[in-house]
Amino acid sequence: MSKHHALDRFGRSGNPVIRSAAFQERVSGNEEKMSLEGAVNKTGILLFLTVMAAAVSWNYQGPLMTLVSSLGMFVAFVSGIMTFGFYFFFVGWLVEPRPHNAPRAAPVYAIGMGFFIGLISQQAESLYPGIVIQAVSLTFFVAASLLLAYKTGVIKPNQNFLLMVFAATMGIFLTYLANLIYFAVTGNNFFVLTDNGIVGIVISLFIIGIAALNLVLDFDIIEQADEQGAPKYMEWFGAMALVATLIWLYIEILRLLMKLRGR
């Protein structure tokens, strides 16, 4: 017990003290805690918003919708960075993760990406009828299989697993970024990304594998946040992470099916 009785009794008043660790703990102690059920509900809400936005963009194709979809993707990208942060090799966090932004950013992300995937899905469906149902089904099949593997402890993510998946994901991100720059300059894509030969298909399978392993990390984030009694907004954070990975997985599966059907 210190001799500063007034401080002990009333706490340290004044703004700097409000930021003390003890105060923060008390605040988080009274806060509503997240639950697995809540994270599942939020995942459902976000997927519903994605499907609704995709349905609008599917049904009203045209130059205006192309603009809306591009804008939607940009807004989704910004809300993703605002929540998950942005890490770059050898540099560190360019933008630090802010999970408390998730309740506002997640619906924006879901709707923005919905417009984008509605557009590309409609174009794929007009080329190869039935391909969207197959891609959606395979996405849920992969997600359900990995969920069961995670819940039963068949796949056990550890630090090495995280490093491997993170490095591969960053590698894919950099390849896509380089492809975007190459496309802006030359008007062409990297051959290996669009090729429907063996090389292109193997690369697609590799990317799908990495996207699927990202799902395992999302399951682990949700599970651990629930165990540790994380704040309620972590339900939105976990759901947003899960939906972001599911959308990425869906796009990659759609690309693979298009390559296979185009052979």
Binding site: P99, A144, L162, A225
Partner: peptide, 28 residues
């Protein structure tokens, strides 16, 4: 199955990823 907790084989491991180290959800 997303609603159910993972098995103890998954949750009671010593080599789990410490997510709170990367995601600052404790004090915003």
């Amino acid at each position: 199955f997303l609603k159910f907790k993972a098995s103890t084989k998954q949750t009671q491991r010593k080599d789990r990823i410490r997510w709170s180290k990367y995601i600052p959800y404790k004090n915003e």
